[in-house]
């Protein structure tokens, strides 16, 4: 593992990210619309026991939506890199593929943290009560979760042969993961098939963890949530590294 090399990959991602400000704006604009318009609108006629209002309830889910989109797309963007000789130029350096992969994952995690931080600021507007501990824990959970999600994106990007399939990612990966995660509804009264689909989705546990930290409402046990979140990140990265090593330049 060449740490200077990993750092170089990460730094490249950072420099380009912060020079493309519209990307940051568009990444947070949608979740904020969801939070204010959808959350406010539906919230005017929906009451969830134990929570002040519906907006607060879905806040953890909207936070997840932000980093779900940003890290999967960030990873899958690899398919564009591969089309150009930019990635080839990196692949012919002595840097190992797992180092390149790690640098990319760190890049994805950092982007997501920046975007999530902006959303967290909006949380104050809907009266989420933060403590130092809850902010630190939230960022920690996001770090682990986005490491896993970026790896998923990179895996998709290393298997895709052309950017034409990009739309399919939204339809068949991101939306199912989002809508079947309890981001927008409680898990307690679901029918059997929705219950099963939510339970096999690791993001359900990630949202539940975040909701526990942010508004003190949690469905699963804390240990269960930690095991699933960490386990998901580890497995996704192992699969991702494998895919990245086999990827044709």
């Amino acid at each position: 593992m060449n740490l200077a090399g990993v750092y170089a990959i990460w730094q490249r991602e950072m420099l380009t990210f912060f020079r493309e400000k519209p990307r940051i704006v568009s990444a947070v604009a949608n979740p904020i619309l969801w939070l204010l318009a959808f959350g406010g609108g539906l919230g005017s006629s929906v009451v969830i026991p134990g929570v002040e209002n519906y907006q607060q309830y879905i806040f953890a889910g909207i936070l997840m939506q932000t980093f779900l989109f940003s890290s999967i797309f960030y990873g899958a963007y690899l398919v564009w890199d591969r089309r150009m000789d930019l990635l080839k130029a990196i692949l012919v350096t002595p840097l190992s593929r797992s180092s390149i992969f790690l640098g990319k994952v760190l890049g994805g995690v950092t982007f997501s943290l920046v975007e999530a931080a902006i959303i967290l600021v909006f949380g104050a507007i809907i009266n989420i009560q933060y403590t130092v501990a809850s902010v630190i824990l939230t960022l920690l959970v996001i770090t682990v979760a986005t490491a896993g999600l970026t790896a998923v994106g990179l895996t998709i990007g290393s298997y895709m042969t052309s950017p034409e399939g990009f739309q399919l990612i939204t339809t068949f990966v991101i939306f199912p993961l989002f809508f079947l995660s309890g981001a927008l509804y409680p898990l307690s009264n679901l029918n059997v098939y929705l219950d099963v689909l939510n339970r096999i989705n690791p993001l359900t546990y990630i949202v539940d963890t975040l909701r526990g930290i942010l508004i003190g409402l949690q469905y699963f046990g804390t240990l269960e949530n930690i095991v699933v979140t960490v386990g998901f990140a580890v497995i996704a990265n192992l699969i991702g590294i494998r895919a990245f090593k086999k990827m044709r330049a």
Binding site: G5, A8, L15, R19, M84, L86, A89, P94
Partner: peptide, 21 residues
């Protein structure tokens, strides 16, 4: 083309130098 458009010439080379250790 294989250089990063959003980086300066110097940065482009610097990052590769780091990758080469």
């Amino acid at each position: 083309p294989s250089s990063d458009e959003l980086l300066t010439g110097y940065e482009n080379i610097k990052l590769y130098a780091m990758m080469y250790g």
